[in-house]
Simulated scan of single mutants.
Amino acid sequence: MEVDGLVTALERIEHATRDFVRPGHTAESPAALLGVLAECGRALGHPYAIDPGLDDARNEASRHCAVVQENLSAVMEEVRRLNVTVSGLLPSLVRIADRE
């Protein structure tokens, strides 16, 4: 992969992470970030031999990308499970509340 591809991948990751951490981010931000990390994170894993310092920073960014991707996937799964549980509880609780 050429350096231009790496620059593009880093720009996309920067934009997605900024959108994710911005207060009031949209509900789509976690999924969008996960998609960008899955797609662009691979670009960080290729050796470029540009400069030892840059390669070290790229390797660190690649590790962070993988950790965020793994953890965000786990959080999104837990949120889905929470939604299923709450959705199952609500009808019964609404019926009980309506009787009172």
Rank of each mutant, 00 (worst) to 15 (best):
N59W: 04
P30E: 05
Y48L: 15
V3Y: 14
H25Q: 07
R80W: 01
L33E: 04
D19Y: 02
D98P: 00
R95Q: 14
I96Y: 10
E2N: 15
R58E: 01
L90E: 08
R81V: 03
G53Q: 13
E39Q: 14
L44W: 03
G24K: 04
D51Q: 11
V21G: 05
Y48H: 15
E70F: 06
D51K: 04
G88K: 01
V75F: 08
R12N: 14
G24M: 02
R12G: 01
Y48P: 02
T85C: 06
R18K: 13
I96D: 08
V75K: 06
D98S: 13
D98W: 07
S29W: 03
E70W: 07
V86L: 14
V86Y: 03
P30L: 05
V84Y: 07
V7W: 07
D56P: 02
R58Q: 08
M76E: 13
E39T: 14
V84E: 15
P52C: 06
C40F: 04
A9Q: 01
M76C: 04
S62W: 00
A27D: 07
V75W: 06
H64Y: 10
P23S: 05
V86M: 01
E70V: 07
T26H: 11
R63P: 00
A9S: 10
S73L: 10
G88M: 05
S87P: 01
G53F: 09
R99C: 11
E2A: 14
G41D: 04
L54N: 07
G35A: 04
R81K: 15
P30M: 04
R95I: 11
L33S: 05
E2F: 09
F20L: 11
E77L: 12
L90G: 01
L54C: 09
G88Q: 10
E11V: 12
L44F: 05
A66L: 08
E100A: 09
N59M: 10
P91I: 02
G88F: 01
H64R: 15
R18Q: 13
E28C: 04
S62H: 13
V86S: 00
G45R: 13
L90W: 03
L89I: 04
N71S: 05
A32C: 07
R81D: 06
R80K: 15
V79Q: 06
R42E: 11
